[in-house]
């Protein structure tokens, strides 16, 4: 399953809830959730620990828009909107953790 997160990990439990509940699969960070994919943010270790179970992707246009295109954490794979579409088609279902 593809899990889509759109909230900053520092103001919302969405990412935490997804990491705690979902069994695995792909995670795509979009909109304000892209902050979770940046080096040095307080949640970096937690996301890194989840990388065994999940493959983590970030929507680069959203990260670049926020001035953090050069702070991408290691292990997170950058995608554009086309890559977003590919993730939704390669997974049988997707869930937006709004």
């Amino acid at each position: 399953m593809l899990h889509i997160i759109n909230k900053s990990p520092l103001t919302s439990v969405s990412l935490d809830s997804c990491l705690n509940t979902a069994t695995g699969g792909d995670i795509l960070l979009i909109e304000d959730a892209v902050y979770a994919a940046t080096r040095g943010n307080a949640g970096e270790a937690k996301l890194r620990n989840a990388m065994g179970r999940f493959k983590v992707h970030v929507l680069m246009p959203d990260l670049e828009a926020r001035g953090l295109g050069d702070r991408l954490m290691e292990g997170v794979s950058p995608v554009d909107y086309g890559g977003f579409v590919d993730l939704t088609s390669s997974n049988k279902t997707c869930q937006s953790w709004l």
Partner: peptide
């Protein structure tokens, strides 16, 4: 649809 994608808050 084969896929339903939700965008919201």
């Amino acid at each position: 649809c084969d896929r339903l994608v939700t965008f919201g808050d």
